[in-house]
Design a protein around this nucleic acid. Structure first.
Lengths: 129, 129
DNA sequence: AATAGTACTCTACAAGTGTAGAGAAAGTCA
DNA sequence: TGACTTTCTCTACACTTGTAGAGTACTATT
C-alpha cells in the first residue's frame, strides 16, 4: 500500500519516456529525440536529466568521456505513481469510485467495453484459482 | 474531447474540496476547516485562494466587508482533469491501457470486480438503446 | 472615543521547474 | 598542431507553489 511515491513532472515524463526507449543512452540522444516534440535545447534536456539523477529517477555511468543514463524506475512504477496521485487527490484514495467515474464519463466504445469485460472475466478466473 | 484543462496542484485540491463543501464561504471558514489536516495559517489559505481566483478556479463576491468564495469548476470537472492528466502523461492519452493497468495492478476484491462488471453491463445496455 | 476582535492586504522568501547561454574539455581530422 | 565537433559543466533567470508575518481596516463593544 505504501509506495515511495515516484511523482514525475510533465517534463520528467517526457524525458523518462525517451530514456525508456533508448537506455542506456546519452543526453544528446534524448535531446534529439525530444527536439520535435518539445523544442528543448541540449542544455535544457541535460539539466533536467541531471536533476532527475539527483532525485534518483535516473542513474548514470561514465564511459570514458561519455555519460550514459539509465532509468531507475520502470514504466509500470511510474504509471502506478501517476495513477496513485490522481486517485489520491481526486478520489480520496478510493479506487472503485475512480473506476466508476471512468466508466461513466468517458464515452467508451462497445469494443472497449467488451475488452474491459473480458479483462475482468479473466481477472476473476485467476482470482478463483 | 478538448478540455480547458483544469489541472490543480495538491494545495489547490485541498482548498477546493473545502470550498465545495461550504460554498459560498469566507476564507476563514476554509482555514478553520483545513487547520487539522494541513496546519495552514490564515495567510497561507487566503493567498492560495486569491491565486486560485486569479487562475479562474474560484470566484468571489464581496458583501460589505466580507469576501465570499465560490468554485468555478465542479468536482466532476476537476476529477476529470486529474484523470486526463494521468492518462495523458502516463498512457499517451489512451484510456483502455490505463483501465487495463488499473485492473491488473490493483488487487481488486471479488466484490469490486462484480461491481465493475455490473457497471459495464448497464453501460452497454444504455448504449444499445 | 478607546479597545478588541475579525478579516483583509501587502510583501516576502525558499524550493522546485522550465528554460537556456557561455564556455571548457576532449576527441578527430586535415 | 591547429581547427572543428561533440559533449559536458556552470551559472542564471523567471515563474509557480507552499508558506506565512506584519500591518491595516472595519465592526462591535464598553
Amino acid at each position: 500500500m505504501v509506495k515511495s511515491q515516484s511523482e514525475l513532472t510533465a517534463g520528467e515524463w517526457a524525458i523518462i519516456q525517451a530514456v525508456w526507449d533508448n537506455e542506456p543512452c546519452a543526453a544528446p540522444t534524448i535531446q534529439e529525440e525530444l527536439e520535435k516534440k518539445t523544442g528543448w535545447s541540449y542544455s535544457t534536456v541535460k539539466t533536467m536529466m541531471d536533476r532527475m539523477v539527483a532525485k534518483g529517477l535516473l542513474r548514470t555511468q561514465r564511459i570514458r568521456n561519455l555519460i550514459l543514463y539509465n532509468s531507475v524506475i520502470t514504466k509500470k512504477e511510474a504509471q502506478r505513481g501517476e495513477i496513485m496521485r490522481a486517485v489520491k487527490r481526486a478520489f480520496g484514495g478510493a479506487m472503485t469510485p475512480m473506476m466508476q467515474f471512468l466508466l461513466d464519463s468517458k464515452s467508451l466504445t462497445e469494443e472497449e467495453l467488451n475488452q474491459l469485460e473480458a479483462m475482468i472475466k479473466s481477472k476473476k478466473e485467476k482470482a478463483k484459482k
